[in-house]
Amino acid sequence: MQIFVKTLTGKTITLEVEPSDTIENVKAKIQDKEGIPPDQQRLIFAGKQLEDGRTLSDYNIQKESTSHLVLR
Rank of each mutant, 00 (worst) to 15 (best):
E34I: 15
I3M: 05
L8F: 13
Q49C: 14
Q41W: 06
E16Q: 12
D52H: 06
P37F: 05
L43V: 03
Q41H: 04
L43E: 00
T55Y: 05
E51R: 09
E34Y: 07
L71N: 05
S65F: 10
L43Y: 02
I36N: 02
R54W: 10
K33T: 08
K11E: 07
P38M: 15
I13A: 01
E64P: 06
P37L: 06
S65N: 10
N60G: 15
D32I: 13
I61Q: 01
L15N: 00
L50V: 04
D58G: 03
R72K: 13
R54K: 13
S67H: 12
R54E: 05
D21I: 05
K29W: 04
E51C: 11
S57R: 12
N60R: 07
E51T: 06
Q31F: 15
I30M: 03
T66D: 09
L15M: 04
L8C: 15
L50G: 02
Q41I: 11
T9M: 11
A28N: 11
T22A: 04
E34T: 15
D21W: 10
Q49R: 10
T9Q: 11
E18D: 12
L43W: 03
G35I: 02
G53C: 08
I13C: 02
D21L: 05
L50F: 02
L50S: 01
T7L: 14
Q40A: 09
D39A: 12
S65V: 09
L15H: 00
E64K: 08
V5N: 00
T55G: 02
K27L: 05
E64A: 10
E34A: 11
H68F: 15
E34S: 13
L71S: 06
K27F: 03
A28G: 09
K33W: 06
T22Y: 07
K6D: 07
E64F: 14
D32S: 12
P38Q: 12
N25E: 12
G47W: 04
K63H: 15
G47I: 02
F45N: 04
E16K: 09
Q2K: 14
T7A: 05
A28H: 12
I44F: 15
I30D: 00
V17T: 03
P19E: 08
T55C: 07
P19K: 06
L50M: 12
Y59F: 04
G53R: 09
G53T: 10
L69T: 02
Q2G: 04
E18R: 14
K48Y: 09
V17S: 02
G47D: 05
Q2N: 11
L56Q: 00
I36K: 02
K29A: 06
K48C: 10
H68L: 15
F4D: 04
R54G: 05
N60D: 10
T12K: 07
T9W: 15
I44Y: 15
D39Y: 12
P37N: 07
S57H: 09
L71F: 06
N60H: 09
E51S: 07
P38T: 14
G53Q: 11
T55F: 06
L50H: 01
Q40F: 08
L8P: 14
I30L: 07
G35E: 03
E34K: 04
E24D: 07
F45E: 01
L50W: 02
I3Q: 01
N60T: 04
D58Q: 07
S57L: 11
T66N: 10
V5Y: 03
L43Q: 00
I61W: 04
S20Q: 10
M1V: 06
R72N: 10
L71G: 06
L50T: 03
K29M: 13
I44N: 05
Q62W: 10
E64L: 12
E64N: 15
L43A: 00
L71C: 06
D58W: 11
T66A: 09
Q40K: 12
E16I: 14
F4V: 10
L69G: 02
E16T: 13
N60F: 06
A46I: 06
D39Q: 11
K63Q: 12
P19A: 09
S57E: 11
A28Y: 12
M1Y: 14
R42A: 09
K33L: 13
S20C: 11
D52G: 06
D21M: 10
F45C: 04
V17C: 09
G35V: 02
Q49K: 10
G10R: 04
G35R: 05
H68E: 10
G35D: 05
K11I: 08
E16Y: 13
P19N: 05
V26C: 03
T14M: 12
L43F: 03
K33N: 05
Q49E: 15
M1R: 03
I13S: 01
S67L: 15
D21F: 07
A46W: 09
D21Y: 06
L56G: 00
G53L: 08
V5E: 00
T66M: 11
D52Q: 04
E18Y: 14
S57V: 07
R72V: 15
F4G: 03
Q49H: 11
P19T: 07
F4L: 09
I36F: 09
L71E: 06
L56C: 01
T66Y: 09
I3K: 00
E24N: 07
D39T: 10
E34G: 04
K63M: 11
L56F: 03
T14G: 05
S67E: 12
